[in-house]
Amino acid sequence: MSSQNDFTFPFFYSYPPYFTLQPVKDTRDKQIALWKELILRYCRHHKVFVLDIADDSELFANSTIKRRLDTDARISILEDVVSSGSGLWLREKQRCLILWHNIPKWAEILCDWVKNNALYDEPMTLEEIVNGIESQGTEIHGVHMEILLRAVQHLEKLGRARLFQGTLDGAEGVKFFP
């Protein structure tokens, strides 16, 4: 995991008080905003799509200063992430999907990818979009299925995509239109 070395944690990550939710509202708001910014940046850098509240990753726990966010703090921060449109609870207060791009932005990225690979009108499984060779080296590759699905649904509303089912189990497909 050499890429982890590339990531620089902000200054507050080394200050113990930031790992405890502050009682004064103004201070707490600023604290949560800082954590939110860190979470989005961290997840984007490491391509982490889902954060588990119970997971003691380096994001929530700094082993160097022996401090960790407690469960309540993690929930409070993630609730703020969700309410600002940068996250979705996959399981309420347990597992959170992190959207470092919001859904319309993901839809735009998806659209550009379809255009650049001349994949209009091609019936594709959602699975092959995420894991197929066409998406390799792009942001689409390995994207969380929930994000892909929501991005496609967003494009469907704009008339630029159509979701459909095959006859086999798990055969969920999509066609994109110019």
């Binding site: 019936p123 008339g159 459909f164 497909g173």
Partner: peptide, 24 residues
């Protein structure tokens, strides 16, 4: 214009999807 704007899904599309799923 854009005749496929409505996005008609044909039997061939479903067959293709099934084959891709089967391949996977």
């Amino acid at each position: 214009g854009k005749p496929t704007k409505k996005g008609n899904i044909t039997d061939a599309d479903r067959a293709m999807l099934d084959m891709k799923t089967q391949k996977r």
